[in-house]
Computed example of a mutant assay.
Amino acid sequence: MRENLALRRLMNDLGLTQAELARRTNIALGDLTGKPGLVSERTVYNWLSGVTRWPPAKHREALRAVFGCTGPDLGFSRPDKGRRVPPEDDVRRRAFMMAVGGATLAVGSPEMTAPRRIGRADVEQLKARFAGVIASDHRHGGRLSVESRAVALADEALALQQAGTASQRIRAALFACAASFMSSAMWAAIDGRRFDAAQRYHERAARLAAMSDDGAIQFRIWSHAGSLYRHMRRPGDALAANDVARGLPIARRDPLFASLGHARHAAIHGLTGDSNAVRRSIGRAQESLNRADFEAIRPVWITAHFDQAELDSLGLAAYLALGRYEDAEAHAHRSLGLLRPHMQRSRAITSARLARAQLVPHQATFALSEVLPVDGFGRWR
């Protein structure tokens, strides 16, 4: 047996004990299968010690959701050829042999040798599935199941690159689809505060987006990076990443993209304590939003997400970070009044931030009232 050093290193990077990894894997299994997972500390020990060299498919998929890595990247290896073939591989092999047996006479025919042609229909099918990922995100937020599904679909989009022939335009579109799915995995990881995984997704998404030459998805990825570093409380990195997004041609050409870039800049400036920068960024975001043509054709991820309600939500985050609670509360009320019905995740976040804006200013009063009596009008005696 050989110790699984790759898995141990990933656990150390995330500060996971065997018990915590078992817990997270069971959560992922629940999201994936709808049934509680049964992974124990002993199961994790078997993975680490090398007793289990290739876990069952559902465990590998759950671990992918936890770490953002595939089986081999986690230090697992497929069984040797001399070992017993898993049942699912038996099924695939029998299906393959039946297909080969039925096609023996046609081996030399053009139909059997011609590679598949990948076309616009394949791309449109991937885009439809991407819309499903976006819908899941708005309902559930940063669940591991959303993250895992997005990664799997990114891999599927990339697999089409190898499945047949395609024009340069179609290949670029496939890379854009893969980058879109990977950016959704990144966003789910950010939302779930799995920041190490989010950083790995960002690196992969940025490479894919560069090969796609798609300005919209490049904007999304770098804008997400700004949000990632903001949540990690690294405002310098957040401003730099968001500046990449704001500097893209699409942000200069389309006021809606420009507005989102300014609004996220405001939220980052809130961390720096620069109230003037927050005010300027929100003002620019509002001006750009007022100029946006909402009838224009745009990617589903921005049309389903960004509008006046989201601008006010980012304003809420900015003023909450500044400690300007009345301004934060005003933005929260406007956002909640404008949120579209499908924005369930956003409604939950905005409601929680509103509660904080209303409660935090009174915490000092509650603490001080224990030692300094307050009269019936809320004044110190």
Rank of each mutant, 00 (worst) to 15 (best):
F294Q: 10
L316Y: 04
H333W: 09
D243Y: 12
A330H: 08
V278Q: 04
E295F: 10
A258S: 12
Y325K: 09
R230D: 04
A348L: 14
N276I: 15
G247Y: 15
S259Y: 03
N242K: 13
A245E: 05
D274C: 08
Y229S: 02
P361T: 05
R345E: 10
V278L: 06
D327W: 07
A285T: 09
H265P: 00
G337M: 11
L314M: 10
L314C: 05
R345W: 08
Y325H: 12
G226N: 07
I268N: 11
D327G: 11
A304T: 07
F306V: 09
A251W: 02
A225V: 05
R252Y: 06
H305Q: 13
R334P: 05
H269A: 07
A238I: 06
L339P: 02
P235D: 03
H262N: 00
L338D: 04
A309N: 07
L260T: 02
H331A: 12
L289M: 15
D254A: 13
Y319T: 02
R347I: 08
D254G: 12
N290C: 08
P341S: 11
A258D: 08
A328M: 06
G337N: 11
L339K: 01
R356M: 14
H331L: 08
D293N: 12
L260M: 08
A241D: 00
E326V: 15
D274P: 01
S288F: 01
R345G: 06
Q358V: 10
D307H: 03
H262L: 01
G247I: 10
I250F: 01
L256K: 06
A296D: 12
L320Y: 03
G261V: 00
Y319Q: 04
A266Q: 08
M232C: 13
